[in-house]
């Protein structure tokens, strides 16, 4: 019981500390709809279709009015079906199949954002961002109805730019429009990477 009390007290103190930081104007949340376009070998060798099925978000701590740092997370689903074709898979062996490729990525990254006009009371605030972390990948390939699956965690880095349009000069909430480039090494089925250029649209608001 004594141990439980200590844990509860620690949790309450932690919540109070986070709450105090938030009230200081520190924490902000971004939620995005994410439209992803595969590039490079991902596009050329595996899935060329753009993916409209994605979400992303981050929780950022405002170090000052220009710099913020936090955690980024996302989820994207890629899918493509190729018409029936015959593949030469080994000496003397051929397989005729409709091939379907399906990839899901879930990046989890540390992120930093620089807002050059942050010291000015401007409704439109351009920003640039950088992030790096782990990309959790599920990769399935089907020959007809027969599939193989692979899961992996790989390095991912991200650079981005965009604008935040606040609801007013004194408001910390508004909409966000941006684009990011994802550098995502991956090696399977002749795919060298899962790089992509993503367009993001969403909302941001302070946590308080």
């Amino acid at each position: 019981m004594k141990r439980m009390n200590i844990v509860l007290t620690a949790c309450i103190l932690l919540l109070a500390a986070v709450s105090a930081k938030a009230q200081e104007g520190g924490l902000k949340v971004d939620l995005y709809y994410n439209y992803s376009n595969p590039v490079g070998s991902f596009k050329n060798n595996y899935i060329s279709n753009s993916s409209p099925r994605g979400v992303a978000g981050d929780v950022m701590y405002n170090i000052n009015r220009q710099w913020s740092a936090g955690l980024y997370f996302g989820y994207q689903d890629y899918y493509q079906k190729y018409p029936r074709s015959t593949y030469h898979t080994a000496p003397g062996e051929d397989i005729s199949a409709v091939v379907s490729n399906s990839v899901q990525t879930a990046p989890f990254m540390a992120k930093g954002v620089f807002t050059p006009l942050g010291n000015k009371l401007s409704i439109v605030q351009p920003y640039i961002s950088a992030a790096a972390g782990v990309n959790f990948i599920t990769d399935k390939q089907y020959l007809g109805q027969f599939g193989t699956s692979n899961t992996a965690g790989r390095f991912i880095a991200q650079g981005g730019a965009g604008v935040q349009i606040n609801f007013g000069r004194l408001s910390d909430a508004g909409i966000t429009l941006g684009a990011v480039y994802n550098y995502a090494p991956y090696n399977r089925f002749g795919v060298g990477s899962l790089n992509s250029i993503d367009f993001q649209a969403g909302v941001h608001f302070p946590l308080r």
């Binding site: 099925r53 989820y75 899918y79 079906k81 051929d94 397989i95 005729s96 409709v98 379907s100 599939g147």
Partner: peptide
């Protein structure tokens, strides 16, 4: 959320020939 590949193939497309 996720597009399931097996939900998007016909009976003919499900077949493979080796």
């Amino acid at each position: 959320c996720t597009k399931q590949p097996l939900d998007h193939i016909s009976q003919d497309e499900s077949r493979i020939y080796i």
